[in-house]
Simulated scan of single mutants.
Amino acid sequence: MILETLSSLGGWAWVVVGVVLLALELVVPGGVLVWLGVAGIVTGLASLFQPIGLPFQFLLFGGLSLVLIAGWLRYQKGRTVPTDRPYLNRRADQLMGQVATLDEAIVNGSGRLGLGDTIWRIAGPDLPAGHRVRIIGAEGATLRVEPVDAG
């Protein structure tokens, strides 16, 4: 029954489906429905200007959908969006290269270091309290440190 209705409406059914998919993209954003809608409209226009059988219409719609979505995903993957806050949600990366003074000694390769309003776990060679260290890396929430030479 649905296929009979689609074939009786011809290409207009595809155009309507395409417009509905484009409208749904406004409600459910994500980028995929746009390309399904475009594929539907192109399929409808193709079947309006050139008589195409219903199986080929579905094949054209499916193929166009896959090509358009794959192309969009490939374009998005290679695109980087510049930001004015590159270290947002990467607090440990903000601290790389900073020099600080140990509040507590590093014992058995681990200790704690206060930076700003946060106390960080640190890992590095055993050092006494008051020694200066440089942050050289991070492993999760633990900062890797090395001693800073006094000279």
Rank of each mutant, 00 (worst) to 15 (best):
T43M: 02
D93P: 05
L64V: 01
P55D: 12
G53N: 12
T101H: 03
Q94P: 00
D93Q: 15
W72T: 05
L45T: 15
L102M: 05
F61N: 00
S47H: 02
R74K: 14
R85Y: 13
A70L: 10
S65I: 05
T83Q: 10
I52N: 09
V67Q: 03
S65G: 13
G63E: 04
V42N: 02
G71R: 00
N89G: 02
T80D: 07
V99T: 11
L66T: 04
G62H: 11
L68R: 00
T43P: 02
F56Y: 10
E104N: 11
L48K: 07
R91K: 08
D84S: 07
I106M: 13
F49Y: 14
A100V: 10
V81R: 11
L66E: 07
G78R: 12
F58G: 06
I52L: 06
N89H: 13
D117S: 15
W72I: 00
L66H: 01
P86E: 04
V107P: 03
R74Y: 09
K77R: 05
L54F: 13
G116E: 09
Y87G: 03
L59Q: 06
A46G: 05
D93L: 08
L59I: 15
G78Y: 06
F56W: 14
Q50E: 00
L95T: 11
T101E: 08
P55H: 15
L73W: 15
G44L: 07
R79Q: 07
G44N: 02
L45H: 01
F49K: 01
A105G: 04
Q50F: 07
T101I: 10
L102Y: 10
L113W: 14
I106N: 03
A92R: 13
V81T: 07
S110E: 15
A92F: 08
K77P: 13
G114V: 04
L64W: 03
D117A: 11
L73N: 06
G53V: 03
F58S: 02
G111T: 13
P55M: 15
R85I: 01
R74H: 08
Y87R: 03
R90M: 01
R79D: 07
L54N: 02
Q94G: 12
Q57P: 10
G116Q: 09
F58I: 09
L68F: 08
L48H: 06
L73C: 00
W72L: 07
L66A: 12
R79A: 13
V42S: 02
G62W: 05
Q57C: 14
W72A: 15
D117T: 10
I106P: 08
G111L: 09
I69C: 04
N89M: 10
Q76L: 14
I52F: 01
Q98W: 06
F61V: 03
L73V: 15
Q94D: 07
G63L: 04
L113E: 10
P51D: 09
Y87E: 14
V107D: 05
L68H: 01
Q57K: 00
V107G: 00
L45Y: 08
R85L: 03
F61M: 01
F49I: 02
Q98H: 10
L102R: 00
E104Y: 12
L115P: 06
R90A: 03
P55N: 09
D103F: 03
I69N: 04
